Simulated assay, not measured.
Amino acid sequence: MSDYKPGSRWKSAVGTGEFVVVRPPSGEGELTCGGAAVLAHNAAAGPASDAPAGSEGTAAGKRYAETESGIEILCSKAGTGDLAFAGRPLARKDAKPLPASD
């Protein structure tokens, strides 16, 4: 298991995506992108292959979260491959709507 501390930086092993942990998981598990474990941002290894076809990928500036573990990830560089934690997909979080003013 890797140490997913708030502010820690990670990159995809199968694409160009880069990520920052906003909220760490409450339990054990592995963060994956495109089905492969993410690498520490300072790891020498680059993308080994392409992400599986049909994946939505990640968008820069968007947050992704998984409710069971509580993990929340910020995508700092767009890439291919979908994020998952402990085999459960992370969903993109949409911005909260502002309250209506009268």
Rank of each mutant, 00 (worst) to 15 (best):
M1Q: 12
A13F: 04
K5D: 14
G27I: 14
S55N: 12
C75A: 05
R63V: 10
E66C: 04
P25N: 00
A86Y: 01
G35H: 07
D50Y: 03
L31P: 06
G79Q: 08
G29C: 01
A84D: 02
R9C: 10
W10F: 11
S55L: 07
P97N: 04
G27F: 11
P97L: 10
L98T: 10
K5A: 12
G27C: 11
C33H: 12
T16A: 12
A36G: 08
N42L: 12
Y4W: 03
A51I: 08
V14W: 00
E18K: 10
Y64V: 03
P99V: 06
P52W: 00
L98W: 05
T32G: 03
H41R: 05
E56P: 03
S12M: 13
S55F: 03
G34A: 03
G61L: 11
T67Q: 08
P89H: 01
G87L: 12
P47C: 09
F19G: 00
D3Q: 14
E72N: 08
R92K: 09
L39Y: 13
V22I: 12
S26N: 07
G34D: 15
G29L: 02
K11R: 05
A78C: 08
E72K: 02
G87D: 07
R23F: 03
F85E: 09
R63Q: 13
L90C: 11
A45D: 15
E30D: 14
P99Q: 04
